[in-house]
Design a protein around this nucleic acid. Structure first.
Lengths: 206, 206
DNA sequence: TGAGTCCCGTGACCAATGTCACATTACCAC
DNA sequence: GTGGTAATGTGACATTGGTCACGGGACTCA
């Protein structure tokens, strides 16, 4: 995908600069883009695909925070990039994903020179922070059934599909739960006519 | 407290500007500084005291995220201020707290003009984001006893005291739990010789 | 010193969720 | 088709943490 088609708010000059200095890279589905503890040398702008941002626990559970899609950027990579620091989270391509890697050295000058970039960075922080707040709310205040419901709803919205290609195990991992619990809750939802269950596939009815 | 004694990294010119345009304000212990949904018109730099950043649930529970102290600023107020947006969190003075309120209009020009301010803002985002990650980790992966332990440890560190003036109910609120549960866990810790319990007071032993 | 209030201790019980064991089913490769 | 494998269904049980009920202790204020 072309940068300027997605990031329409950027000045032409900024777009040129990004194209000139940035590096295009494509990640296959399932490939890890950023690893906990990894040193960050660039900020990733997403051009296509979908990236899962998650936190790993000791047993390798992948607790989902949020997804990133075209037009979004990894706030963590921005913050870290600005200080050439290490990351505390994991990022993985959920499907084939195209990114533009912008070298960390450019960050500061772009911030001062291009208003649209400045706005974009600020807005990115803001959105990610809000998303983190939502995550906290959910795990602090909600039961698993409500969280599952939100999860499916968001997943359907973000992929634009009603057929979610997910195994119960995957869902359990994302919610830091266990397969049996998810199976039971899904079954209950099916009995209430809110989903239909198939192998490796959850169909959202409403 | 004087601004320049705390924010020693700021350029003299920036300090002057802040003193000139900023407004000093003191909040009494327990006073709410920022409310969910409140429109934000300025960024708060903390000069003295301690501020509790928390999330309110439906029943008025005050789920603790983190504390801010002298030299720190509210990242949320910065982000929101930059877009003159509303807040999603609550901030309350835990003890008498002195802040400098910097009008939102200054933010963008200061970002481009003063490198130390730019660095400070970035670093603030970074720290708060990390703190949010820690919160998520704890509520997602840990049991109440581990969370309680971390809570007491952090509280002791941040106040520099071993005598924590906290009722069991307050602790329960901060951890989104119930008094009975906290009482039981504290009792267990006392039996293990890790704390001593008094009325309205938890003494950290180690 | 006595009443009132807040804080804390504690047992009984319940709901949500995690764990274990094992059966069943769907799909794939041959 | 057949065998194998991964996904799902399900009952039994354990654990954690929340709720309820109530008792007792400590501090306050008149």
């Amino acid at each position: 995908m072309e940068l300027k088609k997605i990031y329409t708010q950027f000045e032409p000059e900024l777009l040129e600069l990004l194209e000139e200095k940035g590096m295009h890279k494509t990640f296959a589905a399932g490939e890890v883009i950023l690893r906990t503890g990894q040193y960050i040398k660039s900020t990733a702008l997403i051009l296509s695909g979908r990236v899962k941002i998650y936190r790993e626990n000791e047993e390798g559970g992948e607790f989902l925070m949020y997804f990133l899609q075209a037009g979004q950027a990894c706030a963590v990579s921005m913050i870290c990039a600005l200080q050439a620091d290490t990351s505390e989270i994991m990022a993985k391509a959920e499907e084939e994903t195209e990114v533009l890697l912008v070298p960390v050295e450019l960050m500061e000058s772009m911030m001062t020179k291009y208003r649209s970039w400045y706005q974009y960075v600020i807005q990115t922080y803001r959105s990610r922070f809000d998303e983190m707040l939502t995550v906290v709310d959910h795990i602090a205040f909600q039961n698993m059934d409500e969280r599952l419901e939100f999860y499916l709803k968001r997943y359907a919205e973000q992929t634009g599909k009603k057929m979610l290609e997910l195994s119960h195990q995957q869902i359990a991992d994302d919610l830091n739960s266990s397969r049996e619990v998810i199976s039971r809750l899904l079954k209950k939802m099916e009995q209430q006519g809110r989903v239909k269950l198939h192998r490796n596939l959850v169909e959202v009815v409403k």
